[in-house]
Write a protein that binds this DNA or RNA. Structure first.
Lengths: 252, 252
DNA sequence: GCTTAGCATTGACCTAAATCAAGGAGCCCG
DNA sequence: CGGGCTCCTTGATTTAGGTCAATGCTAAGC
């Protein structure tokens, strides 16, 4: 793992393990996913200034990062692993609004509090920035602010796509869209897109797609029986007929 | 109407009427909703530079502003009226991703093309900015970029709230949420929040909430019979029991 | 004042997905 | 190696909301 150097700080509990950088070379210079992060537009000298305010967080799968309503003191960049962000209704109904992979940014909040909860799906590592300090740094580096605006624009487009899915697609179309979303994001990150890794539970997938666990499971079975996918061990899913899946996902 | 001065350019067709400023005082200095727009953070001198690149657009109710997939050459600030933005599936299923009121910004697109279509619901006026020129101006005025980031963050939070609605709320909860959303936005703009103006059709509301026209209509009737709302002429809806509506909308 | 056209409403019926209820499969731990 | 997890799958049944089909209501045009 990229950040193995921080594993000495890893404790085996649900509490996040945080470490600040000691003297020595910034690990950012070795960051393999920098081009996906908010640090992308910075040169080495500028990046050193970012490194000065960053700390690192490691999370066990299942560990919470923050909860909706907490003061939004930090923002994060995922460096490895998968997280989910979600909102709850008082009776426990849950909507997962996104799954975050390496390079993804989270914690953007215009108000003072987080608008959603975030929790690790798999073991995760993240870069943590104090929001206040990042704001000051952004005034010095408008490039970072531009980058953040660009990230926010992309997320907004993705959110609208997800609204189309939630409001107007069938269970079959939702599952096909979901698998292709995961596959495309894996490919962007240089990981296998078939078989694609699906590390989250059926319940998480259902809460992301506005379905129940049972419907998710049945729909997987149905796609499997139509030879569109194959379910492999360890949460791997082979997309055997991507073209067909794309037609289904697109509503054709 | 604030911008009556432009009515000489108004033509009675579905094509948008566009006018550039002649010499003379900028109408921006008289803009009553400036504090809601991207111009909010600018002083008079800076605003004059914005005025130099802005043009004005008037739309009839029902007239399209742009379509999904068109090159995103302009961004807009609504100055009066209501628009809807939406995405379509190939078979015509439609998801309205938002209704835009005075002060709202639209056209943000990280890619080169608009990710959604925009169409006037009522007669609308908008300020139009060439995207390229605005980008150059933003480099000169980082305050505008900050403002845009702040707008995007708010929209992102609203989008997540809408995902919760689409994925997990019942028809009754959706309609109650929708009426309160309209009422709150009307109040922010100094307009009546009860009765609140609901200028869009049942079909548009359904396409926003992931419901059919019939279900929207039935749910309005049901709320009316429970004395939670009253349906008045001209698309006005009185919120007779706002507390109860808030409980319903919140999922209690 | 009649006709046409576009919403909005209402009723009857249907269906996709939810709910309720067992089982099964893998995994950890004693 | 067996008991107790948790998660996944499958089956039977229910139901919220969709679909289909009239009927009303308002406004515009002649």
């Amino acid at each position: 793992m990229d950040l193995a150097v921080f594993d000495i700080n890893h404790v085996s509990s649900l509490a996040p393990a945080v470490s600040r950088e000691e003297a020595g070379p910034s690990p950012c210079s070795a960051c393999k996913i920098r081009n996906l992060t908010i640090c992308a537009p910075l040169n080495d000298a500028e990046q050193a200034q970012m490194a000065a305010i960053v700390s690192h967080v490691e999370l066990e799968g299942g560990a919470p990062l923050f909860d909706e309503g907490e003061p939004a003191d930090h923002v994060y960049n995922v460096t490895s692993g998968t997280l989910k962000v979600y909102k709850l209704l008082p009776d426990g109904r849950r909507q997962v609004t996104g799954f975050l992979l390496a390079g993804d940014f989270l914690g953007l909040a215009n108000e003072d509090d987080y608008a959603y909860s975030a929790e690790a799906v798999t073991h995760c590592s993240l870069c943590r920035f104090p929001r206040r300090k990042l704001e000051i740094l952004m005034q010095r580096f408008p490039k970072v602010e531009q980058r953040l605006l660009s990230i926010a624009s992309n997320e907004l487009a993705a959110a609208q796509e997800q609204m189309l899915l939630l409001g107007r697609k069938t269970a079959r179309e939702k599952i096909a869209s979901f698998l292709l979303l995961l596959a495309n994001r894996a490919r962007q990150r240089g990981m296998s897109d078939s078989p694609v890794s699906v590390p989250m539970s059926r319940t998480d997938i259902g809460d992301f797609l506005g379905l129940t666990t049972e419907t998710v499971s049945r729909t997987f079975t149905q796609l499997k029986q139509g030879n569109l996918i194959r379910l492999l061990p360890n949460g791997l899913v082979e997309l055997s007929a991507r073209e067909d899946l794309e037609d289904i996902a697109g509503g054709f």
